[in-house]
Amino acid sequence: MATRLRLLRLLRSDAVALAAAACLVVVVLVALFGPMAVGDAAGGINLRNRNAPPFEFTRPWLYWLGSDSLGRSILARIVVAARTTLGIALASVAAALLVGGAVGLVAGLSRGRTGEYILRGVDVIMSFPSLLLALIVLYVLGPAPSNIVIVLGVTRLPVYVRTARAEVLEIRERAFVAAAQVMGAGPVHIALRHVLPLVLPTLLIIGALDFAYVMLAESALSFLGIGVQPPDITWGLMVAEGRAYLTAAWWLAFWPGLAIMMTALAANLLAMWFRIANDPSLRGSLKARVAGNG
């Protein structure tokens, strides 16, 4: 509790991190409630507002970012696509974090060779370009959103397994684990009470960084045409569709790409900040630098 308050106070003192957090909150709110607010402007054909360039403030506000050749509002489409984009990224990261964290925990706690074998298996996934793996799986299994989540989750799995295992191996050697064993603690108690609470913050930080990464990966897949398929839309798909009209209507590809970048940037900045705030040694050096300058 006290640590959470301290974090909030620290967050308030860092303008960049605060802005990133605010940005993420807005994006999430938009994804949750935005589609209701824009109604059917995303799909509805509106010939009066065809090919509207951005910044024509005489049109209704939904058209301020422009519209496509069918007169669909770009802003409305970005809002609707936010839900799919964020949803896929979140689901993939959550799946990778849960499965990878659990596997890593087991690999780290198990005596004998099990941990070693798990690590080797994970290395196989790791040493292979994730996009190629996604290409082949989606080619064979078809580009349904659930398959995309599975593919992205599997390609991100190694990071969590490796990190969780490495942390567990380090924590396992600390004397408080031996102390708990002396008190009569079994492996389950040690895993849940002593190891997990110390591993979790690290995994969550990686999760935040990964959220940005996975969102970019999904966008790339959709851009290449093997990710999300119409009539579903994601930001990556919107960029792909806008690419054909690049010279005539640049805004079709520009705005959704910007949305991807801003969201990824906010997630990355926040994860970076959280890592520093959560690490006493790094935090000390940050503050010390401030004192040293003043």
């Binding site: 600390r174 004397a175 408080f176 031996a178 002396v182 008190m183 009569g184 609470p197």
Partner: peptide, 21 residues
């Protein structure tokens, strides 16, 4: 249980023998 209750330990490194959380 009796053994666990009766035999306890204090370890060398006071920084790692207590869970920091």
């Amino acid at each position: 249980r009796d053994y666990r209750r009766s035999v306890q330990a204090v370890f060398q490194d006071p920084f790692s023998s207590l869970n920091p959380r």
